[in-house]
Design a binder for these strands. Structure first.
Lengths: 330, 330
DNA sequence: TCCTCATGGTTACACGTGTAAGTTGGGATT
DNA sequence: AATCCCAACTTACACGTGTAACCATGAGGA
């Protein structure tokens, strides 16, 4: 409607309309414990707030309490797939239900130090998909910011999803199909080591447990020719099945096998991770390992809430949510 | 949780250490115009700030100025691909360079009204990938929040990327290869209508311009059997080439053609959009239309900055950044 | 009658910042 | 010599909220 200066509606406005003091408004709206408010004024306040469309200023609240209700999720600079995307959606819903607001910051290399960001926002918690320096961690902790490390080398901190388990499931599926000499298709991207290493470790562990030879790891670029080269080397070493870091790498392997004039799964079996939409559209349809992002998102939310209130984090029922989608490629 | 209450470093601390008033600190750190500060005290203040590791409280600053340096990007609830992801990264970098902080909020259906969110955060600008109600828009505008609608039906507001152009490019590529009867593969997802409609419109416009028959639109689910059905219907109507909504749908068409025992591009040519990694790994490698996300991100950043300072938005050199990646499928 | 105590509020302060409005002291101008 | 001005600061207030500390009232017990 009219010109610029429509002032923000504050709790003072609500108080005036309800005919009470500002403090009373605050007590009512926050359900402050140990404060007794009569039912009459309570509804009067609630009414006034609704009528005015009042919503408190996050800035003022944060300033006063020293802590905001924002949960900051720091993404790494590697490309995020639809998996992460949908998980973030779930996470956001779950956190909303706890009165928290999820906010995601995409990583970018030329970033000013992270310090700036969290010092500026003062979030209630930080979900880190990237590694912090020890200095940052202690600083944040002493500033009262809860930290949830979604990926971390440090022992004891729980990963959101145990990536070892993913690799293990891949290997199990292949060995149960009779394969004894496995390969691992490593991604051609330094930035995803965090994820790739533990998956490879899982495959190794599974092989070791069955007294099978160590899997043969090769880097597979997302390029048919380069992938074909990798396929040749695997076949030369007697590998009959490969676990790929993810579905994209798996598709590259598929392309490589085609390029060699061979067929999947007869000449080489392939299994991926993620179940991205193209997986079921591939030739042949890609067998892959998927994790239930709904559960992961909910669990991550629970972990965040626990971390904020200082309680212990719940366990993730990891074994139940990582499962093989059986198609044709393996 | 921890008892080591390391208090926050405030500008008062810096002032004390530098031996000046708090106001002086503020003037120095913000380079306030029309304020004269001697070189001596300036460096003293800067020194002190650096030594203490001071970074201002966004909450307090926002409270005081009524405007934060946060740019809020509201994503829709449909799955975001790596395209959007990388674009957001670029956007974040670009905005950082302007002293703004990008923050992304993943959409989720069961969301409380958006109103809550932006009223709470009071961002400098909102980038909307979703449609607002008129009420919301006027409310935000009067609250001084700049609005950038990345997708919008409203005329005159510039889209981040003109999706019509994308469709047009697809059609041009196919017609230049001699095809005269085109199909359009529509996604099986209500939520992406915003993007799909204009692309289809672009294809239509290109055909109309060449006096070719109207393209035959069919919904293609990401499922080989369903896609095969669509392929059958296209062939029955004499279609020899299809523009797919995006690469995933294109891959589905590829699978459908395979399922019919036919070959691409001889029996049916296919062109996608996005150039996702699986595109070049498909069989046959997928021809597709891609847009330079670096440029888009930078332009979106410029648009945001312009909107905040009330200036007119620059034009996007759209024609230069949408180009065909020519592979085998078309 | 006086004290206690719960109920239902209000007053007052702090959080950390930006900035308008003073306040100096010392040259340059008249 | 009085005046004015300007550089270089400082003082003081406002932003909107949460919450500790205070205050009034009336009921109940000694």
């Amino acid at each position: 409607m009219s010109e610029s200066t429509t002032k923000r509606v504050t709790s003072a406005d609500v108080a005036r309309l309800a005919g009470v003091s500002r403090a009373t408004v605050s007590y009512v709206l926050n359900d402050t414990p140990r404060q007794t408010i009569s039912a009459g004024t309570r509804t009067r306040v609630l009414d006034a707030a609704a009528r005015l469309g009042y919503s408190p200023s996050a800035a003022a609240r944060t300033l006063r309490t020293g802590r905001s209700d924002v949960v900051l999720c720091l993404l790494p600079d590697w490309p995020i797939g639809p998996e992460v995307g949908s998980m973030l959606g779930r996470l956001s819903s779950a956190l909303t239900r706890h009165g928290l607001t999820l906010v995601v910051h995409p990583g970018n290399r030329e970033e000013r130090p992270m310090t700036e960001l969290w010092k500026a926002i003062t979030p209630a918690a930080v979900i880190a998909y990237t590694e912090f320096s020890e200095a940052d961690i202690t600083a944040m902790r002493s500033a009262g910011v809860a930290i949830v490390e979604a990926v971390s080398r440090r022992k004891g901190r729980s990963l959101a999803v145990p990536q070892e388990l993913v690799g293990r499931r891949q290997a199990e599926h292949l060995t149960q199909a009779g394969h004894t000499r496995l390969g691992f298709a490593y991604p051609d991207d330094e930035r995803v080591r965090f994820f790739a290493e533990p998956r490879l470790a899982g495959v190794r562990a599974a092989c070791a447990g069955l007294r099978l030879p160590t899997p043969v790891g090769l880097t597979v670029p997302l390029d048919p020719a380069a992938a074909a080269e990798a396929v040749r080397r695997w076949r030369a070493t007697g590998v009959t099945a490969v676990c790929a870091y993810n579905d994209e790498v798996a598709l590259a392997v598929l392309a490589g096998v085609r390029g060699e004039g061979l067929t999947v799964p007869d000449d080489l079996a392939v299994i991926g991770v993620d179940d991205i939409p193209p997986a079921r559209l591939a030739d042949p349809p890609l067998t892959t390992v998927t994790t239930d992002q709904t559960v992961v998102g909910a669990h991550l939310a629970a972990t965040v809430v626990a971390a904020i209130s200082g309680r212990a984090a719940p366990d993730l029922p990891a074994a139940d949510i990582v499962r093989v989608v059986r198609r044709v490629s393996a």
